[in-house]
C-alpha cells in the first residue's frame, strides 16, 4: 500500500543537484517523481526511482545522507476539485498532510500525487474506504 521514497540531504551549492541526479541515472535508474524542499542553506530532495534499493544504496555508497520514507501514491481524478476532494477526506479525519508533490509522469485521466501524512496507515485506510485509489511501488514503476 505504501510507496518507498528516497529523501536526500543536499547543501545549497553549485552542482550538488546535478551531481546527485547524474549518479542516479548512471546507476541505470529513472526518476519517477521528484520534489525539493529548499531553505537558505540546504535542501531536501525527495524522489521515487525505478529501483528503490539500488537508488538508496548508490547514494549511501557515495556518502549522501539519505533515508527511505513511506509515502502514499494517490491516484487523483484530473479535474477541477479532484485534489480538494482528497484533501477534504483527510481533513474530516483530522489527518495532516506533511508534504505532497506530483509525479513527473502522469496517467491520462488521473494525476498522481505523493502524500506524506502524519498518520500514514490511517490515511491510507480512509482514502481507500472513500474509493480513492492508491498505487503501489510496482504499479508506479510500470506507469
Amino acid at each position: 500500500m505504501f510507496v518507498k521514497q528516497i529523501s536526500v540531504f543536499l547543501e545549497n551549492s553549485k552542482g550538488s543537484l546535478s551531481r546527485m541526479t547524474r549518479m542516479i541515472s548512471e546507476a541505470g535508474l529513472d526518476l519517477i517523481a521528484l520534489s525539493i524542499a529548499d531553505t537558505e542553506h540546504y535542501g531536501i530532495l525527495r524522489c521515487i526511482v525505478t529501483d528503490t534499493e539500488k537508488g538508496y544504496q548508490t547514494l549511501k555508497d557515495a556518502g549522501y545522507t539519505a533515508r527511505l520514507t513511506d509515502v502514499l501514491a494517490v491516484y487523483v481524478p484530473d479535474h477541477p476539485g479532484g485534489l480538494a476532494d482528497v484533501l477534504d477526506v483527510l481533513r474530516d479525519e483530522s489527518i495532516s498532510v506533511e508534504y505532497l508533490y506530483s509525479f513527473v509522469r502522469s496517467s491520462g485521466s488521473h494525476a498522481l500525487i505523493i502524500f506524506h501524512l502524519d498518520e500514514l496507515e490511517r490515511g491510507a485506510e480512509v482514502l481507500t474506504r472513500k474509493g480513492i485509489r492508491l498505487l503501489d511501488q510496482e504499479q508506479i514503476r510500470s506507469l
Binding site: 529523501s7 531553505t39 540546504y42 531536501i44 525527495r46 533515508r67 506533511e98 508534504y99 506524506h116
Partner: peptide, 8 residues
C-alpha cells in the same frame, strides 16, 4: 536527518 525541513 528526518526527511522534513521542520525536523532539521
Amino acid at each position: 536527518f528526518g526527511d522534513t525541513v521542520g525536523h532539521l
